[in-house]
Simulated scan of single mutants.
Amino acid sequence: MELLIITIIVLLGFWLYRFFKTRKILTTLTEEEFRQGYRKAQLIDVREPKEFKGGHILGARNIPLSQLNHRLIEVRKDQPVYLYCQSGARSARAAAVLHKKGYRDLNQLKGGFKHWGGKIKQG
């Protein structure tokens, strides 16, 4: 029983650490805030290509989280980066990868693509 309690405490501590670290390196924007800035930034959809082809925010580039480390040269450090995925989990992981590589102006769409009400492009 003690081992279970210790395990739960450790997992909770790890989750809290990741949660607050992510909040420190990544700004989560409402849809309206996201719309105001994404045209002046690098808009990156970190979902997989099949998801991207099913519909994406107009003007977005598809750099899947699974390929991000190999495609960092495509992302400039001197411009804001606006990330989104389906719900927000992958964009947070992408932000952590980018932050480790020296990127600082990192933003994500609150709730991800599934909450986007703006223009989208199919294909």
Rank of each mutant, 00 (worst) to 15 (best):
L65S: 05
G123Y: 06
Y103S: 04
K119N: 11
E32D: 14
Q122L: 13
K40H: 12
I6A: 15
Y17R: 08
F14C: 13
I73Y: 09
G37E: 08
G102M: 09
I120H: 09
F34E: 05
L106K: 03
P64K: 08
T27R: 14
L11Y: 12
A89F: 04
V81W: 01
G88A: 03
I73R: 12
S87A: 13
E31I: 03
S87P: 01
V10P: 07
R76H: 12
R90W: 05
R61T: 01
E32F: 10
A89N: 08
P49R: 11
E31Y: 07
L109P: 04
E31P: 07
G37V: 08
S66P: 01
G118F: 10
K119R: 14
F20N: 08
L4K: 14
D78F: 11
Q86C: 00
A92N: 01
C85F: 00
Y38L: 07
T7G: 13
E74P: 02
L43G: 04
N62M: 02
R71Q: 13
Q67N: 11
H70D: 15
A60G: 05
P80E: 09
L68G: 01
E51K: 09
S87W: 00
Q79R: 15
T7E: 13
A60H: 02
S87F: 01
Y38D: 04
W15F: 13
K53Y: 07
